[in-house]
Simulated scan of single mutants.
Amino acid sequence: MKGNTSQKILDFIEDKGQATGNDLTGYLSITSRAVRKQLNKLLSEGKLYKVGKPPKVFYLLSKQKSIANKYDIEPSLKKSIDDNFLVITPSGERLEGSQGFIYWCNKQKLGVEKTALEYGRTLKKYIPYKKNGLIDGMYKLKNTFDKIYLDKIFYLDFYSIERFGKTKLGQLLLYAKQSQDKSLIKELASQIRPKVESLIESFDVDAVGFIPPTVKREIQFMQELERNLNLSLPSLKIVKVKTPIIVPQKTLNKLADRIENARDTIMVNDARQYKTLLLLDDALGSGATLNETAKKIKKQKLAENIIGLAITGSFSGFEVISEV
């Protein structure tokens, strides 16, 4: 009976294109509680996804399809895809791992098995840059600026990789910021917290600082990230000052313009002194914001050592990331 009810729900949504809980309660002539139970089951199986928030929640057929025995992908490669691949569809559906990879390949009109091998080779290209889950960005920073005020700079993953686009962390960061989704920010914070705490322990960090946002949003990503990380360390007060015309960093393509923007609009409003500060930013493009902020902190003698950390960073020569 349960199987019949589930199939009736799927058939109804396929026919109508969408459905609410009330639609299904009336159609099936069962209680709303029974409908919710069936919907939760179908959601967990990946057969449906939902959009909207109560009281306006709609259920749609998922784009995910079962791939069991359909493609000949070597187990270790499949695990690598499952661990690293994420795509957000144009309609906002989140597809992870092999399911997302197959959707992406079909969208690009690419053979799944051949492209999976190429994806595996591409991932291996980036492995040497990671040590203990961190990417050391000092070499590239030294090739970008005449003077470096950061003692170390790391990021947790590349924002994107060749051909396949944004990494899993890059996708989560982009949509957490653009959609101002608190649940995504919480998920992101949960993912990166162990690495942040490990870095704090490794460098004996005694304070943290968060780069303030440059774009006005109702829900500010860095503020939510700080709240969700909930680090047991004092937080240095860093502010973004208002100017007659607000110019977001992401609108500036030239390195010199980004340096000027950071220098003239980001201020350190604190007098407490620390030995080692962990300075966090969301995406590292040119590195101008972190380096200029570190310069101000050191000139005011608020920290002896500054460790920079970005969630993601660009791979090719610290090219500018303008999406986030």
Rank of each mutant, 00 (worst) to 15 (best):
K50I: 03
S29H: 14
R36P: 04
K47T: 05
G17L: 06
L24Q: 03
Y27D: 09
S32G: 15
S29D: 13
L42Q: 06
G26R: 02
Q18I: 13
S32I: 08
S44D: 10
L48A: 02
R36H: 15
G26Q: 13
T25M: 14
L28S: 07
L42P: 12
K50T: 08
N40D: 06
N40R: 13
K16W: 09
R36C: 15
R36T: 15
K37A: 08
R33E: 15
G26F: 04
Q18F: 12
S32H: 01
E45S: 10
T31W: 01
S29M: 09
D23M: 14
S44R: 13
T25Q: 02
E45L: 08
A34Y: 11
G52K: 03
Q38W: 04
E45T: 00
G26H: 14
V51P: 01
Y27P: 15
T31S: 15
D15N: 03
L24M: 11
G17M: 11
S44M: 09
P54A: 10
G46M: 06
R36K: 15
K41G: 03
G52F: 02
V35F: 10
N40L: 09
P54Q: 06
N40V: 10
K47D: 03
S32R: 08
A34V: 07
T31V: 06
K50H: 02
S29C: 11
K53Y: 11
S29V: 02
K53G: 01
I30P: 11
R36Y: 15
A19G: 04
L43V: 07
T31H: 10
S44P: 04
G26T: 06
K47I: 10
Y27L: 09
G46Q: 13
Q18W: 12
K47S: 03
L39V: 02
A19K: 08
I13P: 03
G46D: 05
K47V: 02
E14A: 14
K53I: 09
L42V: 14
K41H: 13
D23P: 11
Y49L: 06
L43K: 08
L42A: 08
L43S: 04
S32Y: 00
K16S: 07
Y49G: 02
V35S: 11
N22M: 14
K50S: 15
Q18T: 11
I30W: 00
L42K: 01
V51K: 12
L28Y: 01
S32L: 09
